[in-house]
Design a protein around this nucleic acid. Structure first.
Length: 462
RNA sequence: GGUACUCUGGCAGAACGGUUAUGCGUGAGCCUGCAAAGCUUAUACAAGGGGGUUCGACUCCCUCGGGUACCUCCA
């Protein structure tokens, strides 16, 4: 498998004959997760599911940053503890991503549970004279790490220091960043240098190394993390271990809305909760995978609608497969195996989910065509279904199951309708169809028989 | 100002320097009791502008321009 690496700017080969270790920078838990977070996490979810489908063992670690100014500010505003804020949004995070059918990471380490490790790490940096203590905290000395800027391709002296934040006069260099901040506003911990809390960045270095080792396979996150977050992580980690930190840096493009980045600071976010209510998990997943992961995708009603139409095709395909019983068969069916290979090749080549989806839709369309023409035999359906399920599992698409009782009820209604149709009592027959529609059951009348499908309920259709 | 990414038809999005991608949408027709699903077919000045290299450029080079992101809050 090849993946574009942000650091070297070329595609790097990922050796999938061995266990793969992935660290994904998760969220800072101070607010609802939005569709931008969903995209990054879904991309990695599919990557992981693909690898696992190839019997590759994957260690997938995703952190929660649960100590941070934004959390503290929010806690102060709401007159609660920082811990209450972070635990609330961690809960919400799991609520959202469970619904999005995202598999749980191997581990979700939290910054606050690794303070000892962080202190040990900082000690090493100070011993190596890579960090120094000031009246405000402990700072990493960027000038001591000659490769600083290699990920974001920035030159230290070109950084416009203080363009957005105030320059801290106590630092040696404006580019130096805090690994420990002195503070008496809770949460705080004792450290050899004074009471305070860890700086942003350090927790990811510490926790990734702790759980995945000093050098691991893939480190990822949103593009907006390249600088300063990942740049600083590399500096700290490599200064500490003298080893290359991550083999491949994989960054997921932003989700824009009306061409503008979706972000909490701009206040134009679409929360996952909100989008789930309107479109459901499968449409969101299709949308998030519709473009190459490295590129920007624009959130719009139109795009979601297009993906809803596609999702309907997938649902149709599934129900055609489980109801298939045609006696006829067509000789010139598309090569199922070939489609499967195309799907895999697309993912192997810099994880092109868009192309993988087009392979998947080839399968869907071919199935629906055969079914409409009454040429889908049980045997063929079984072969296709196996491939269909392999792909939907990797993509994380999920067709909700129906209870056996419901199925009987539907079958009975359909039989009644069939009888009425034969008797040309169309008004009565249509009434039954309407009744089933109310239950989100859609009927497909083939030449010889009628099959049903359960449509996922999606609000925005109206 | 610097850096990275990016610019292909109404929208989304591909292609070893040489062929109509494809999907969605839209129009027409077929199928159907009607719908839905499906099928057939049609539809698109397609390449941000301008140069260059080449027999030939979406693809390589130069240049100008647009967009997005980052330049110490961000997935």
């Amino acid at each position: 498998m090849n993946l574009q690496d942000t650091l070297t700017t070329v595609e790097q080969k990922l050796d999938i004959t061995k266990k793969i270790k992935i660290y994904l920078c998760g969220v800072t838990v101070y607010d609802e997760s939005h569709i931008g977070h969903a995209r990054t996490i879904i991309v990695f979810d599919v990557l992981r599911k693909y690898l696992e489908s190839k019997k590759v063992e994957v260690d997938f670690v995703q952190n929660f940053t649960d100590v941070d100014d934004k959390i503290i500010n929010r806690a102060t505003k709401q007159n609660v503890t920082a811990e209450e804020i972070s635990s609330k949004y961690i809960e919400n995070y799991f609520r959202d991503f469970e619904q999005l059918n995202v598999k749980r990471a191997t581990n979700y380490p939290k910054a606050t549970e690794h303070i000892e490790d962080i202190i040990e790490f900082i000690k090493k940096l100070i011993d190596k004279e890579m960090a120094y203590v000031t009246k405000n905290g402990v700072y990493f000395a960027v000038s001591k790490f000659s490769e600083y800027g290699k990920l974001s391709k920035k030159k230290v002296d070109e950084l416009q220091s203080g363009s957005r934040i105030q320059i801290d006069e106590a630092k040696n260099e404006p580019a130096d960043f805090a690994v420990w901040k002195f503070s008496d506003v809770n949460p705080t911990w004792d450290s050899p240098w004074g009471r305070g809390r860890p700086g942003w960045h350090i927790e990811c270095s510490v926790m990734s190394i702790k759980y995945l080792g000093e050098s691991f396979d893939i480190h990822g996150g949103g593009r907006d993390l390249i600088f300063p977050h990942h740049e600083n992580e590399i500096a700290q980690s490599e200064a500490c271990t003298n080893l290359p930190f991550a083999k491949i840096w994989m960054h997921v493009g932003m989700v824009t809305i009306s061409g503008e980045k979706m972000s909490k600071s701009l206040g134009n976010t679409k929360s996952i909760k909100h989008v789930l209510e309107n479109w459901g998990p499968n449409v969101i997943r299709l949308f998030c995978l519709s473009g190459h992961y490295s590129k920007v995708i624009d959130y719009s009603e139109e795009m979601l609608k297009e993906n809803l139409i596609k999702w309907r095709q997938v649902e149709t395909c599934y129900y055609e497969l489980i109801h298939a019983e045609s006696e006829n068969h067509e000789k010139n069916t598309k090569d199922i195996e070939k489609i499967g290979i195309e799907f895999d090749n697309s993912l192997e080549s810099d994880f092109n989910t868009h192309l993988a989806l087009s392979a998947f839709f080839q399968l869907v369309k071919e199935t629906n065509r055969l079914a409409a023409e009454e040429k889908l035999t049980k045997e063929l359906a079984q072969i296709i279904k196996k491939e269909f399920e392999r792909m939907t599992n990797i993509l994380g698409l999920n067709i909700p199951e129906m209870t056996q009782d419901k199925k009987h009820e539907i079958d009975n209604l359909i039989q009644n309708r069939e009888r009425l149709r034969k008797e040309k009592q169309f008004e009565e027959a249509d009434k039954i169809r309407g009744q089933l529609n109310e239950m989100n059951i859609e009927l497909i009348d083939h030449k010889e028989r009628t099959i049903w499908m359960k449509k996922e309920k999606i609000q925005s259709e109206k």
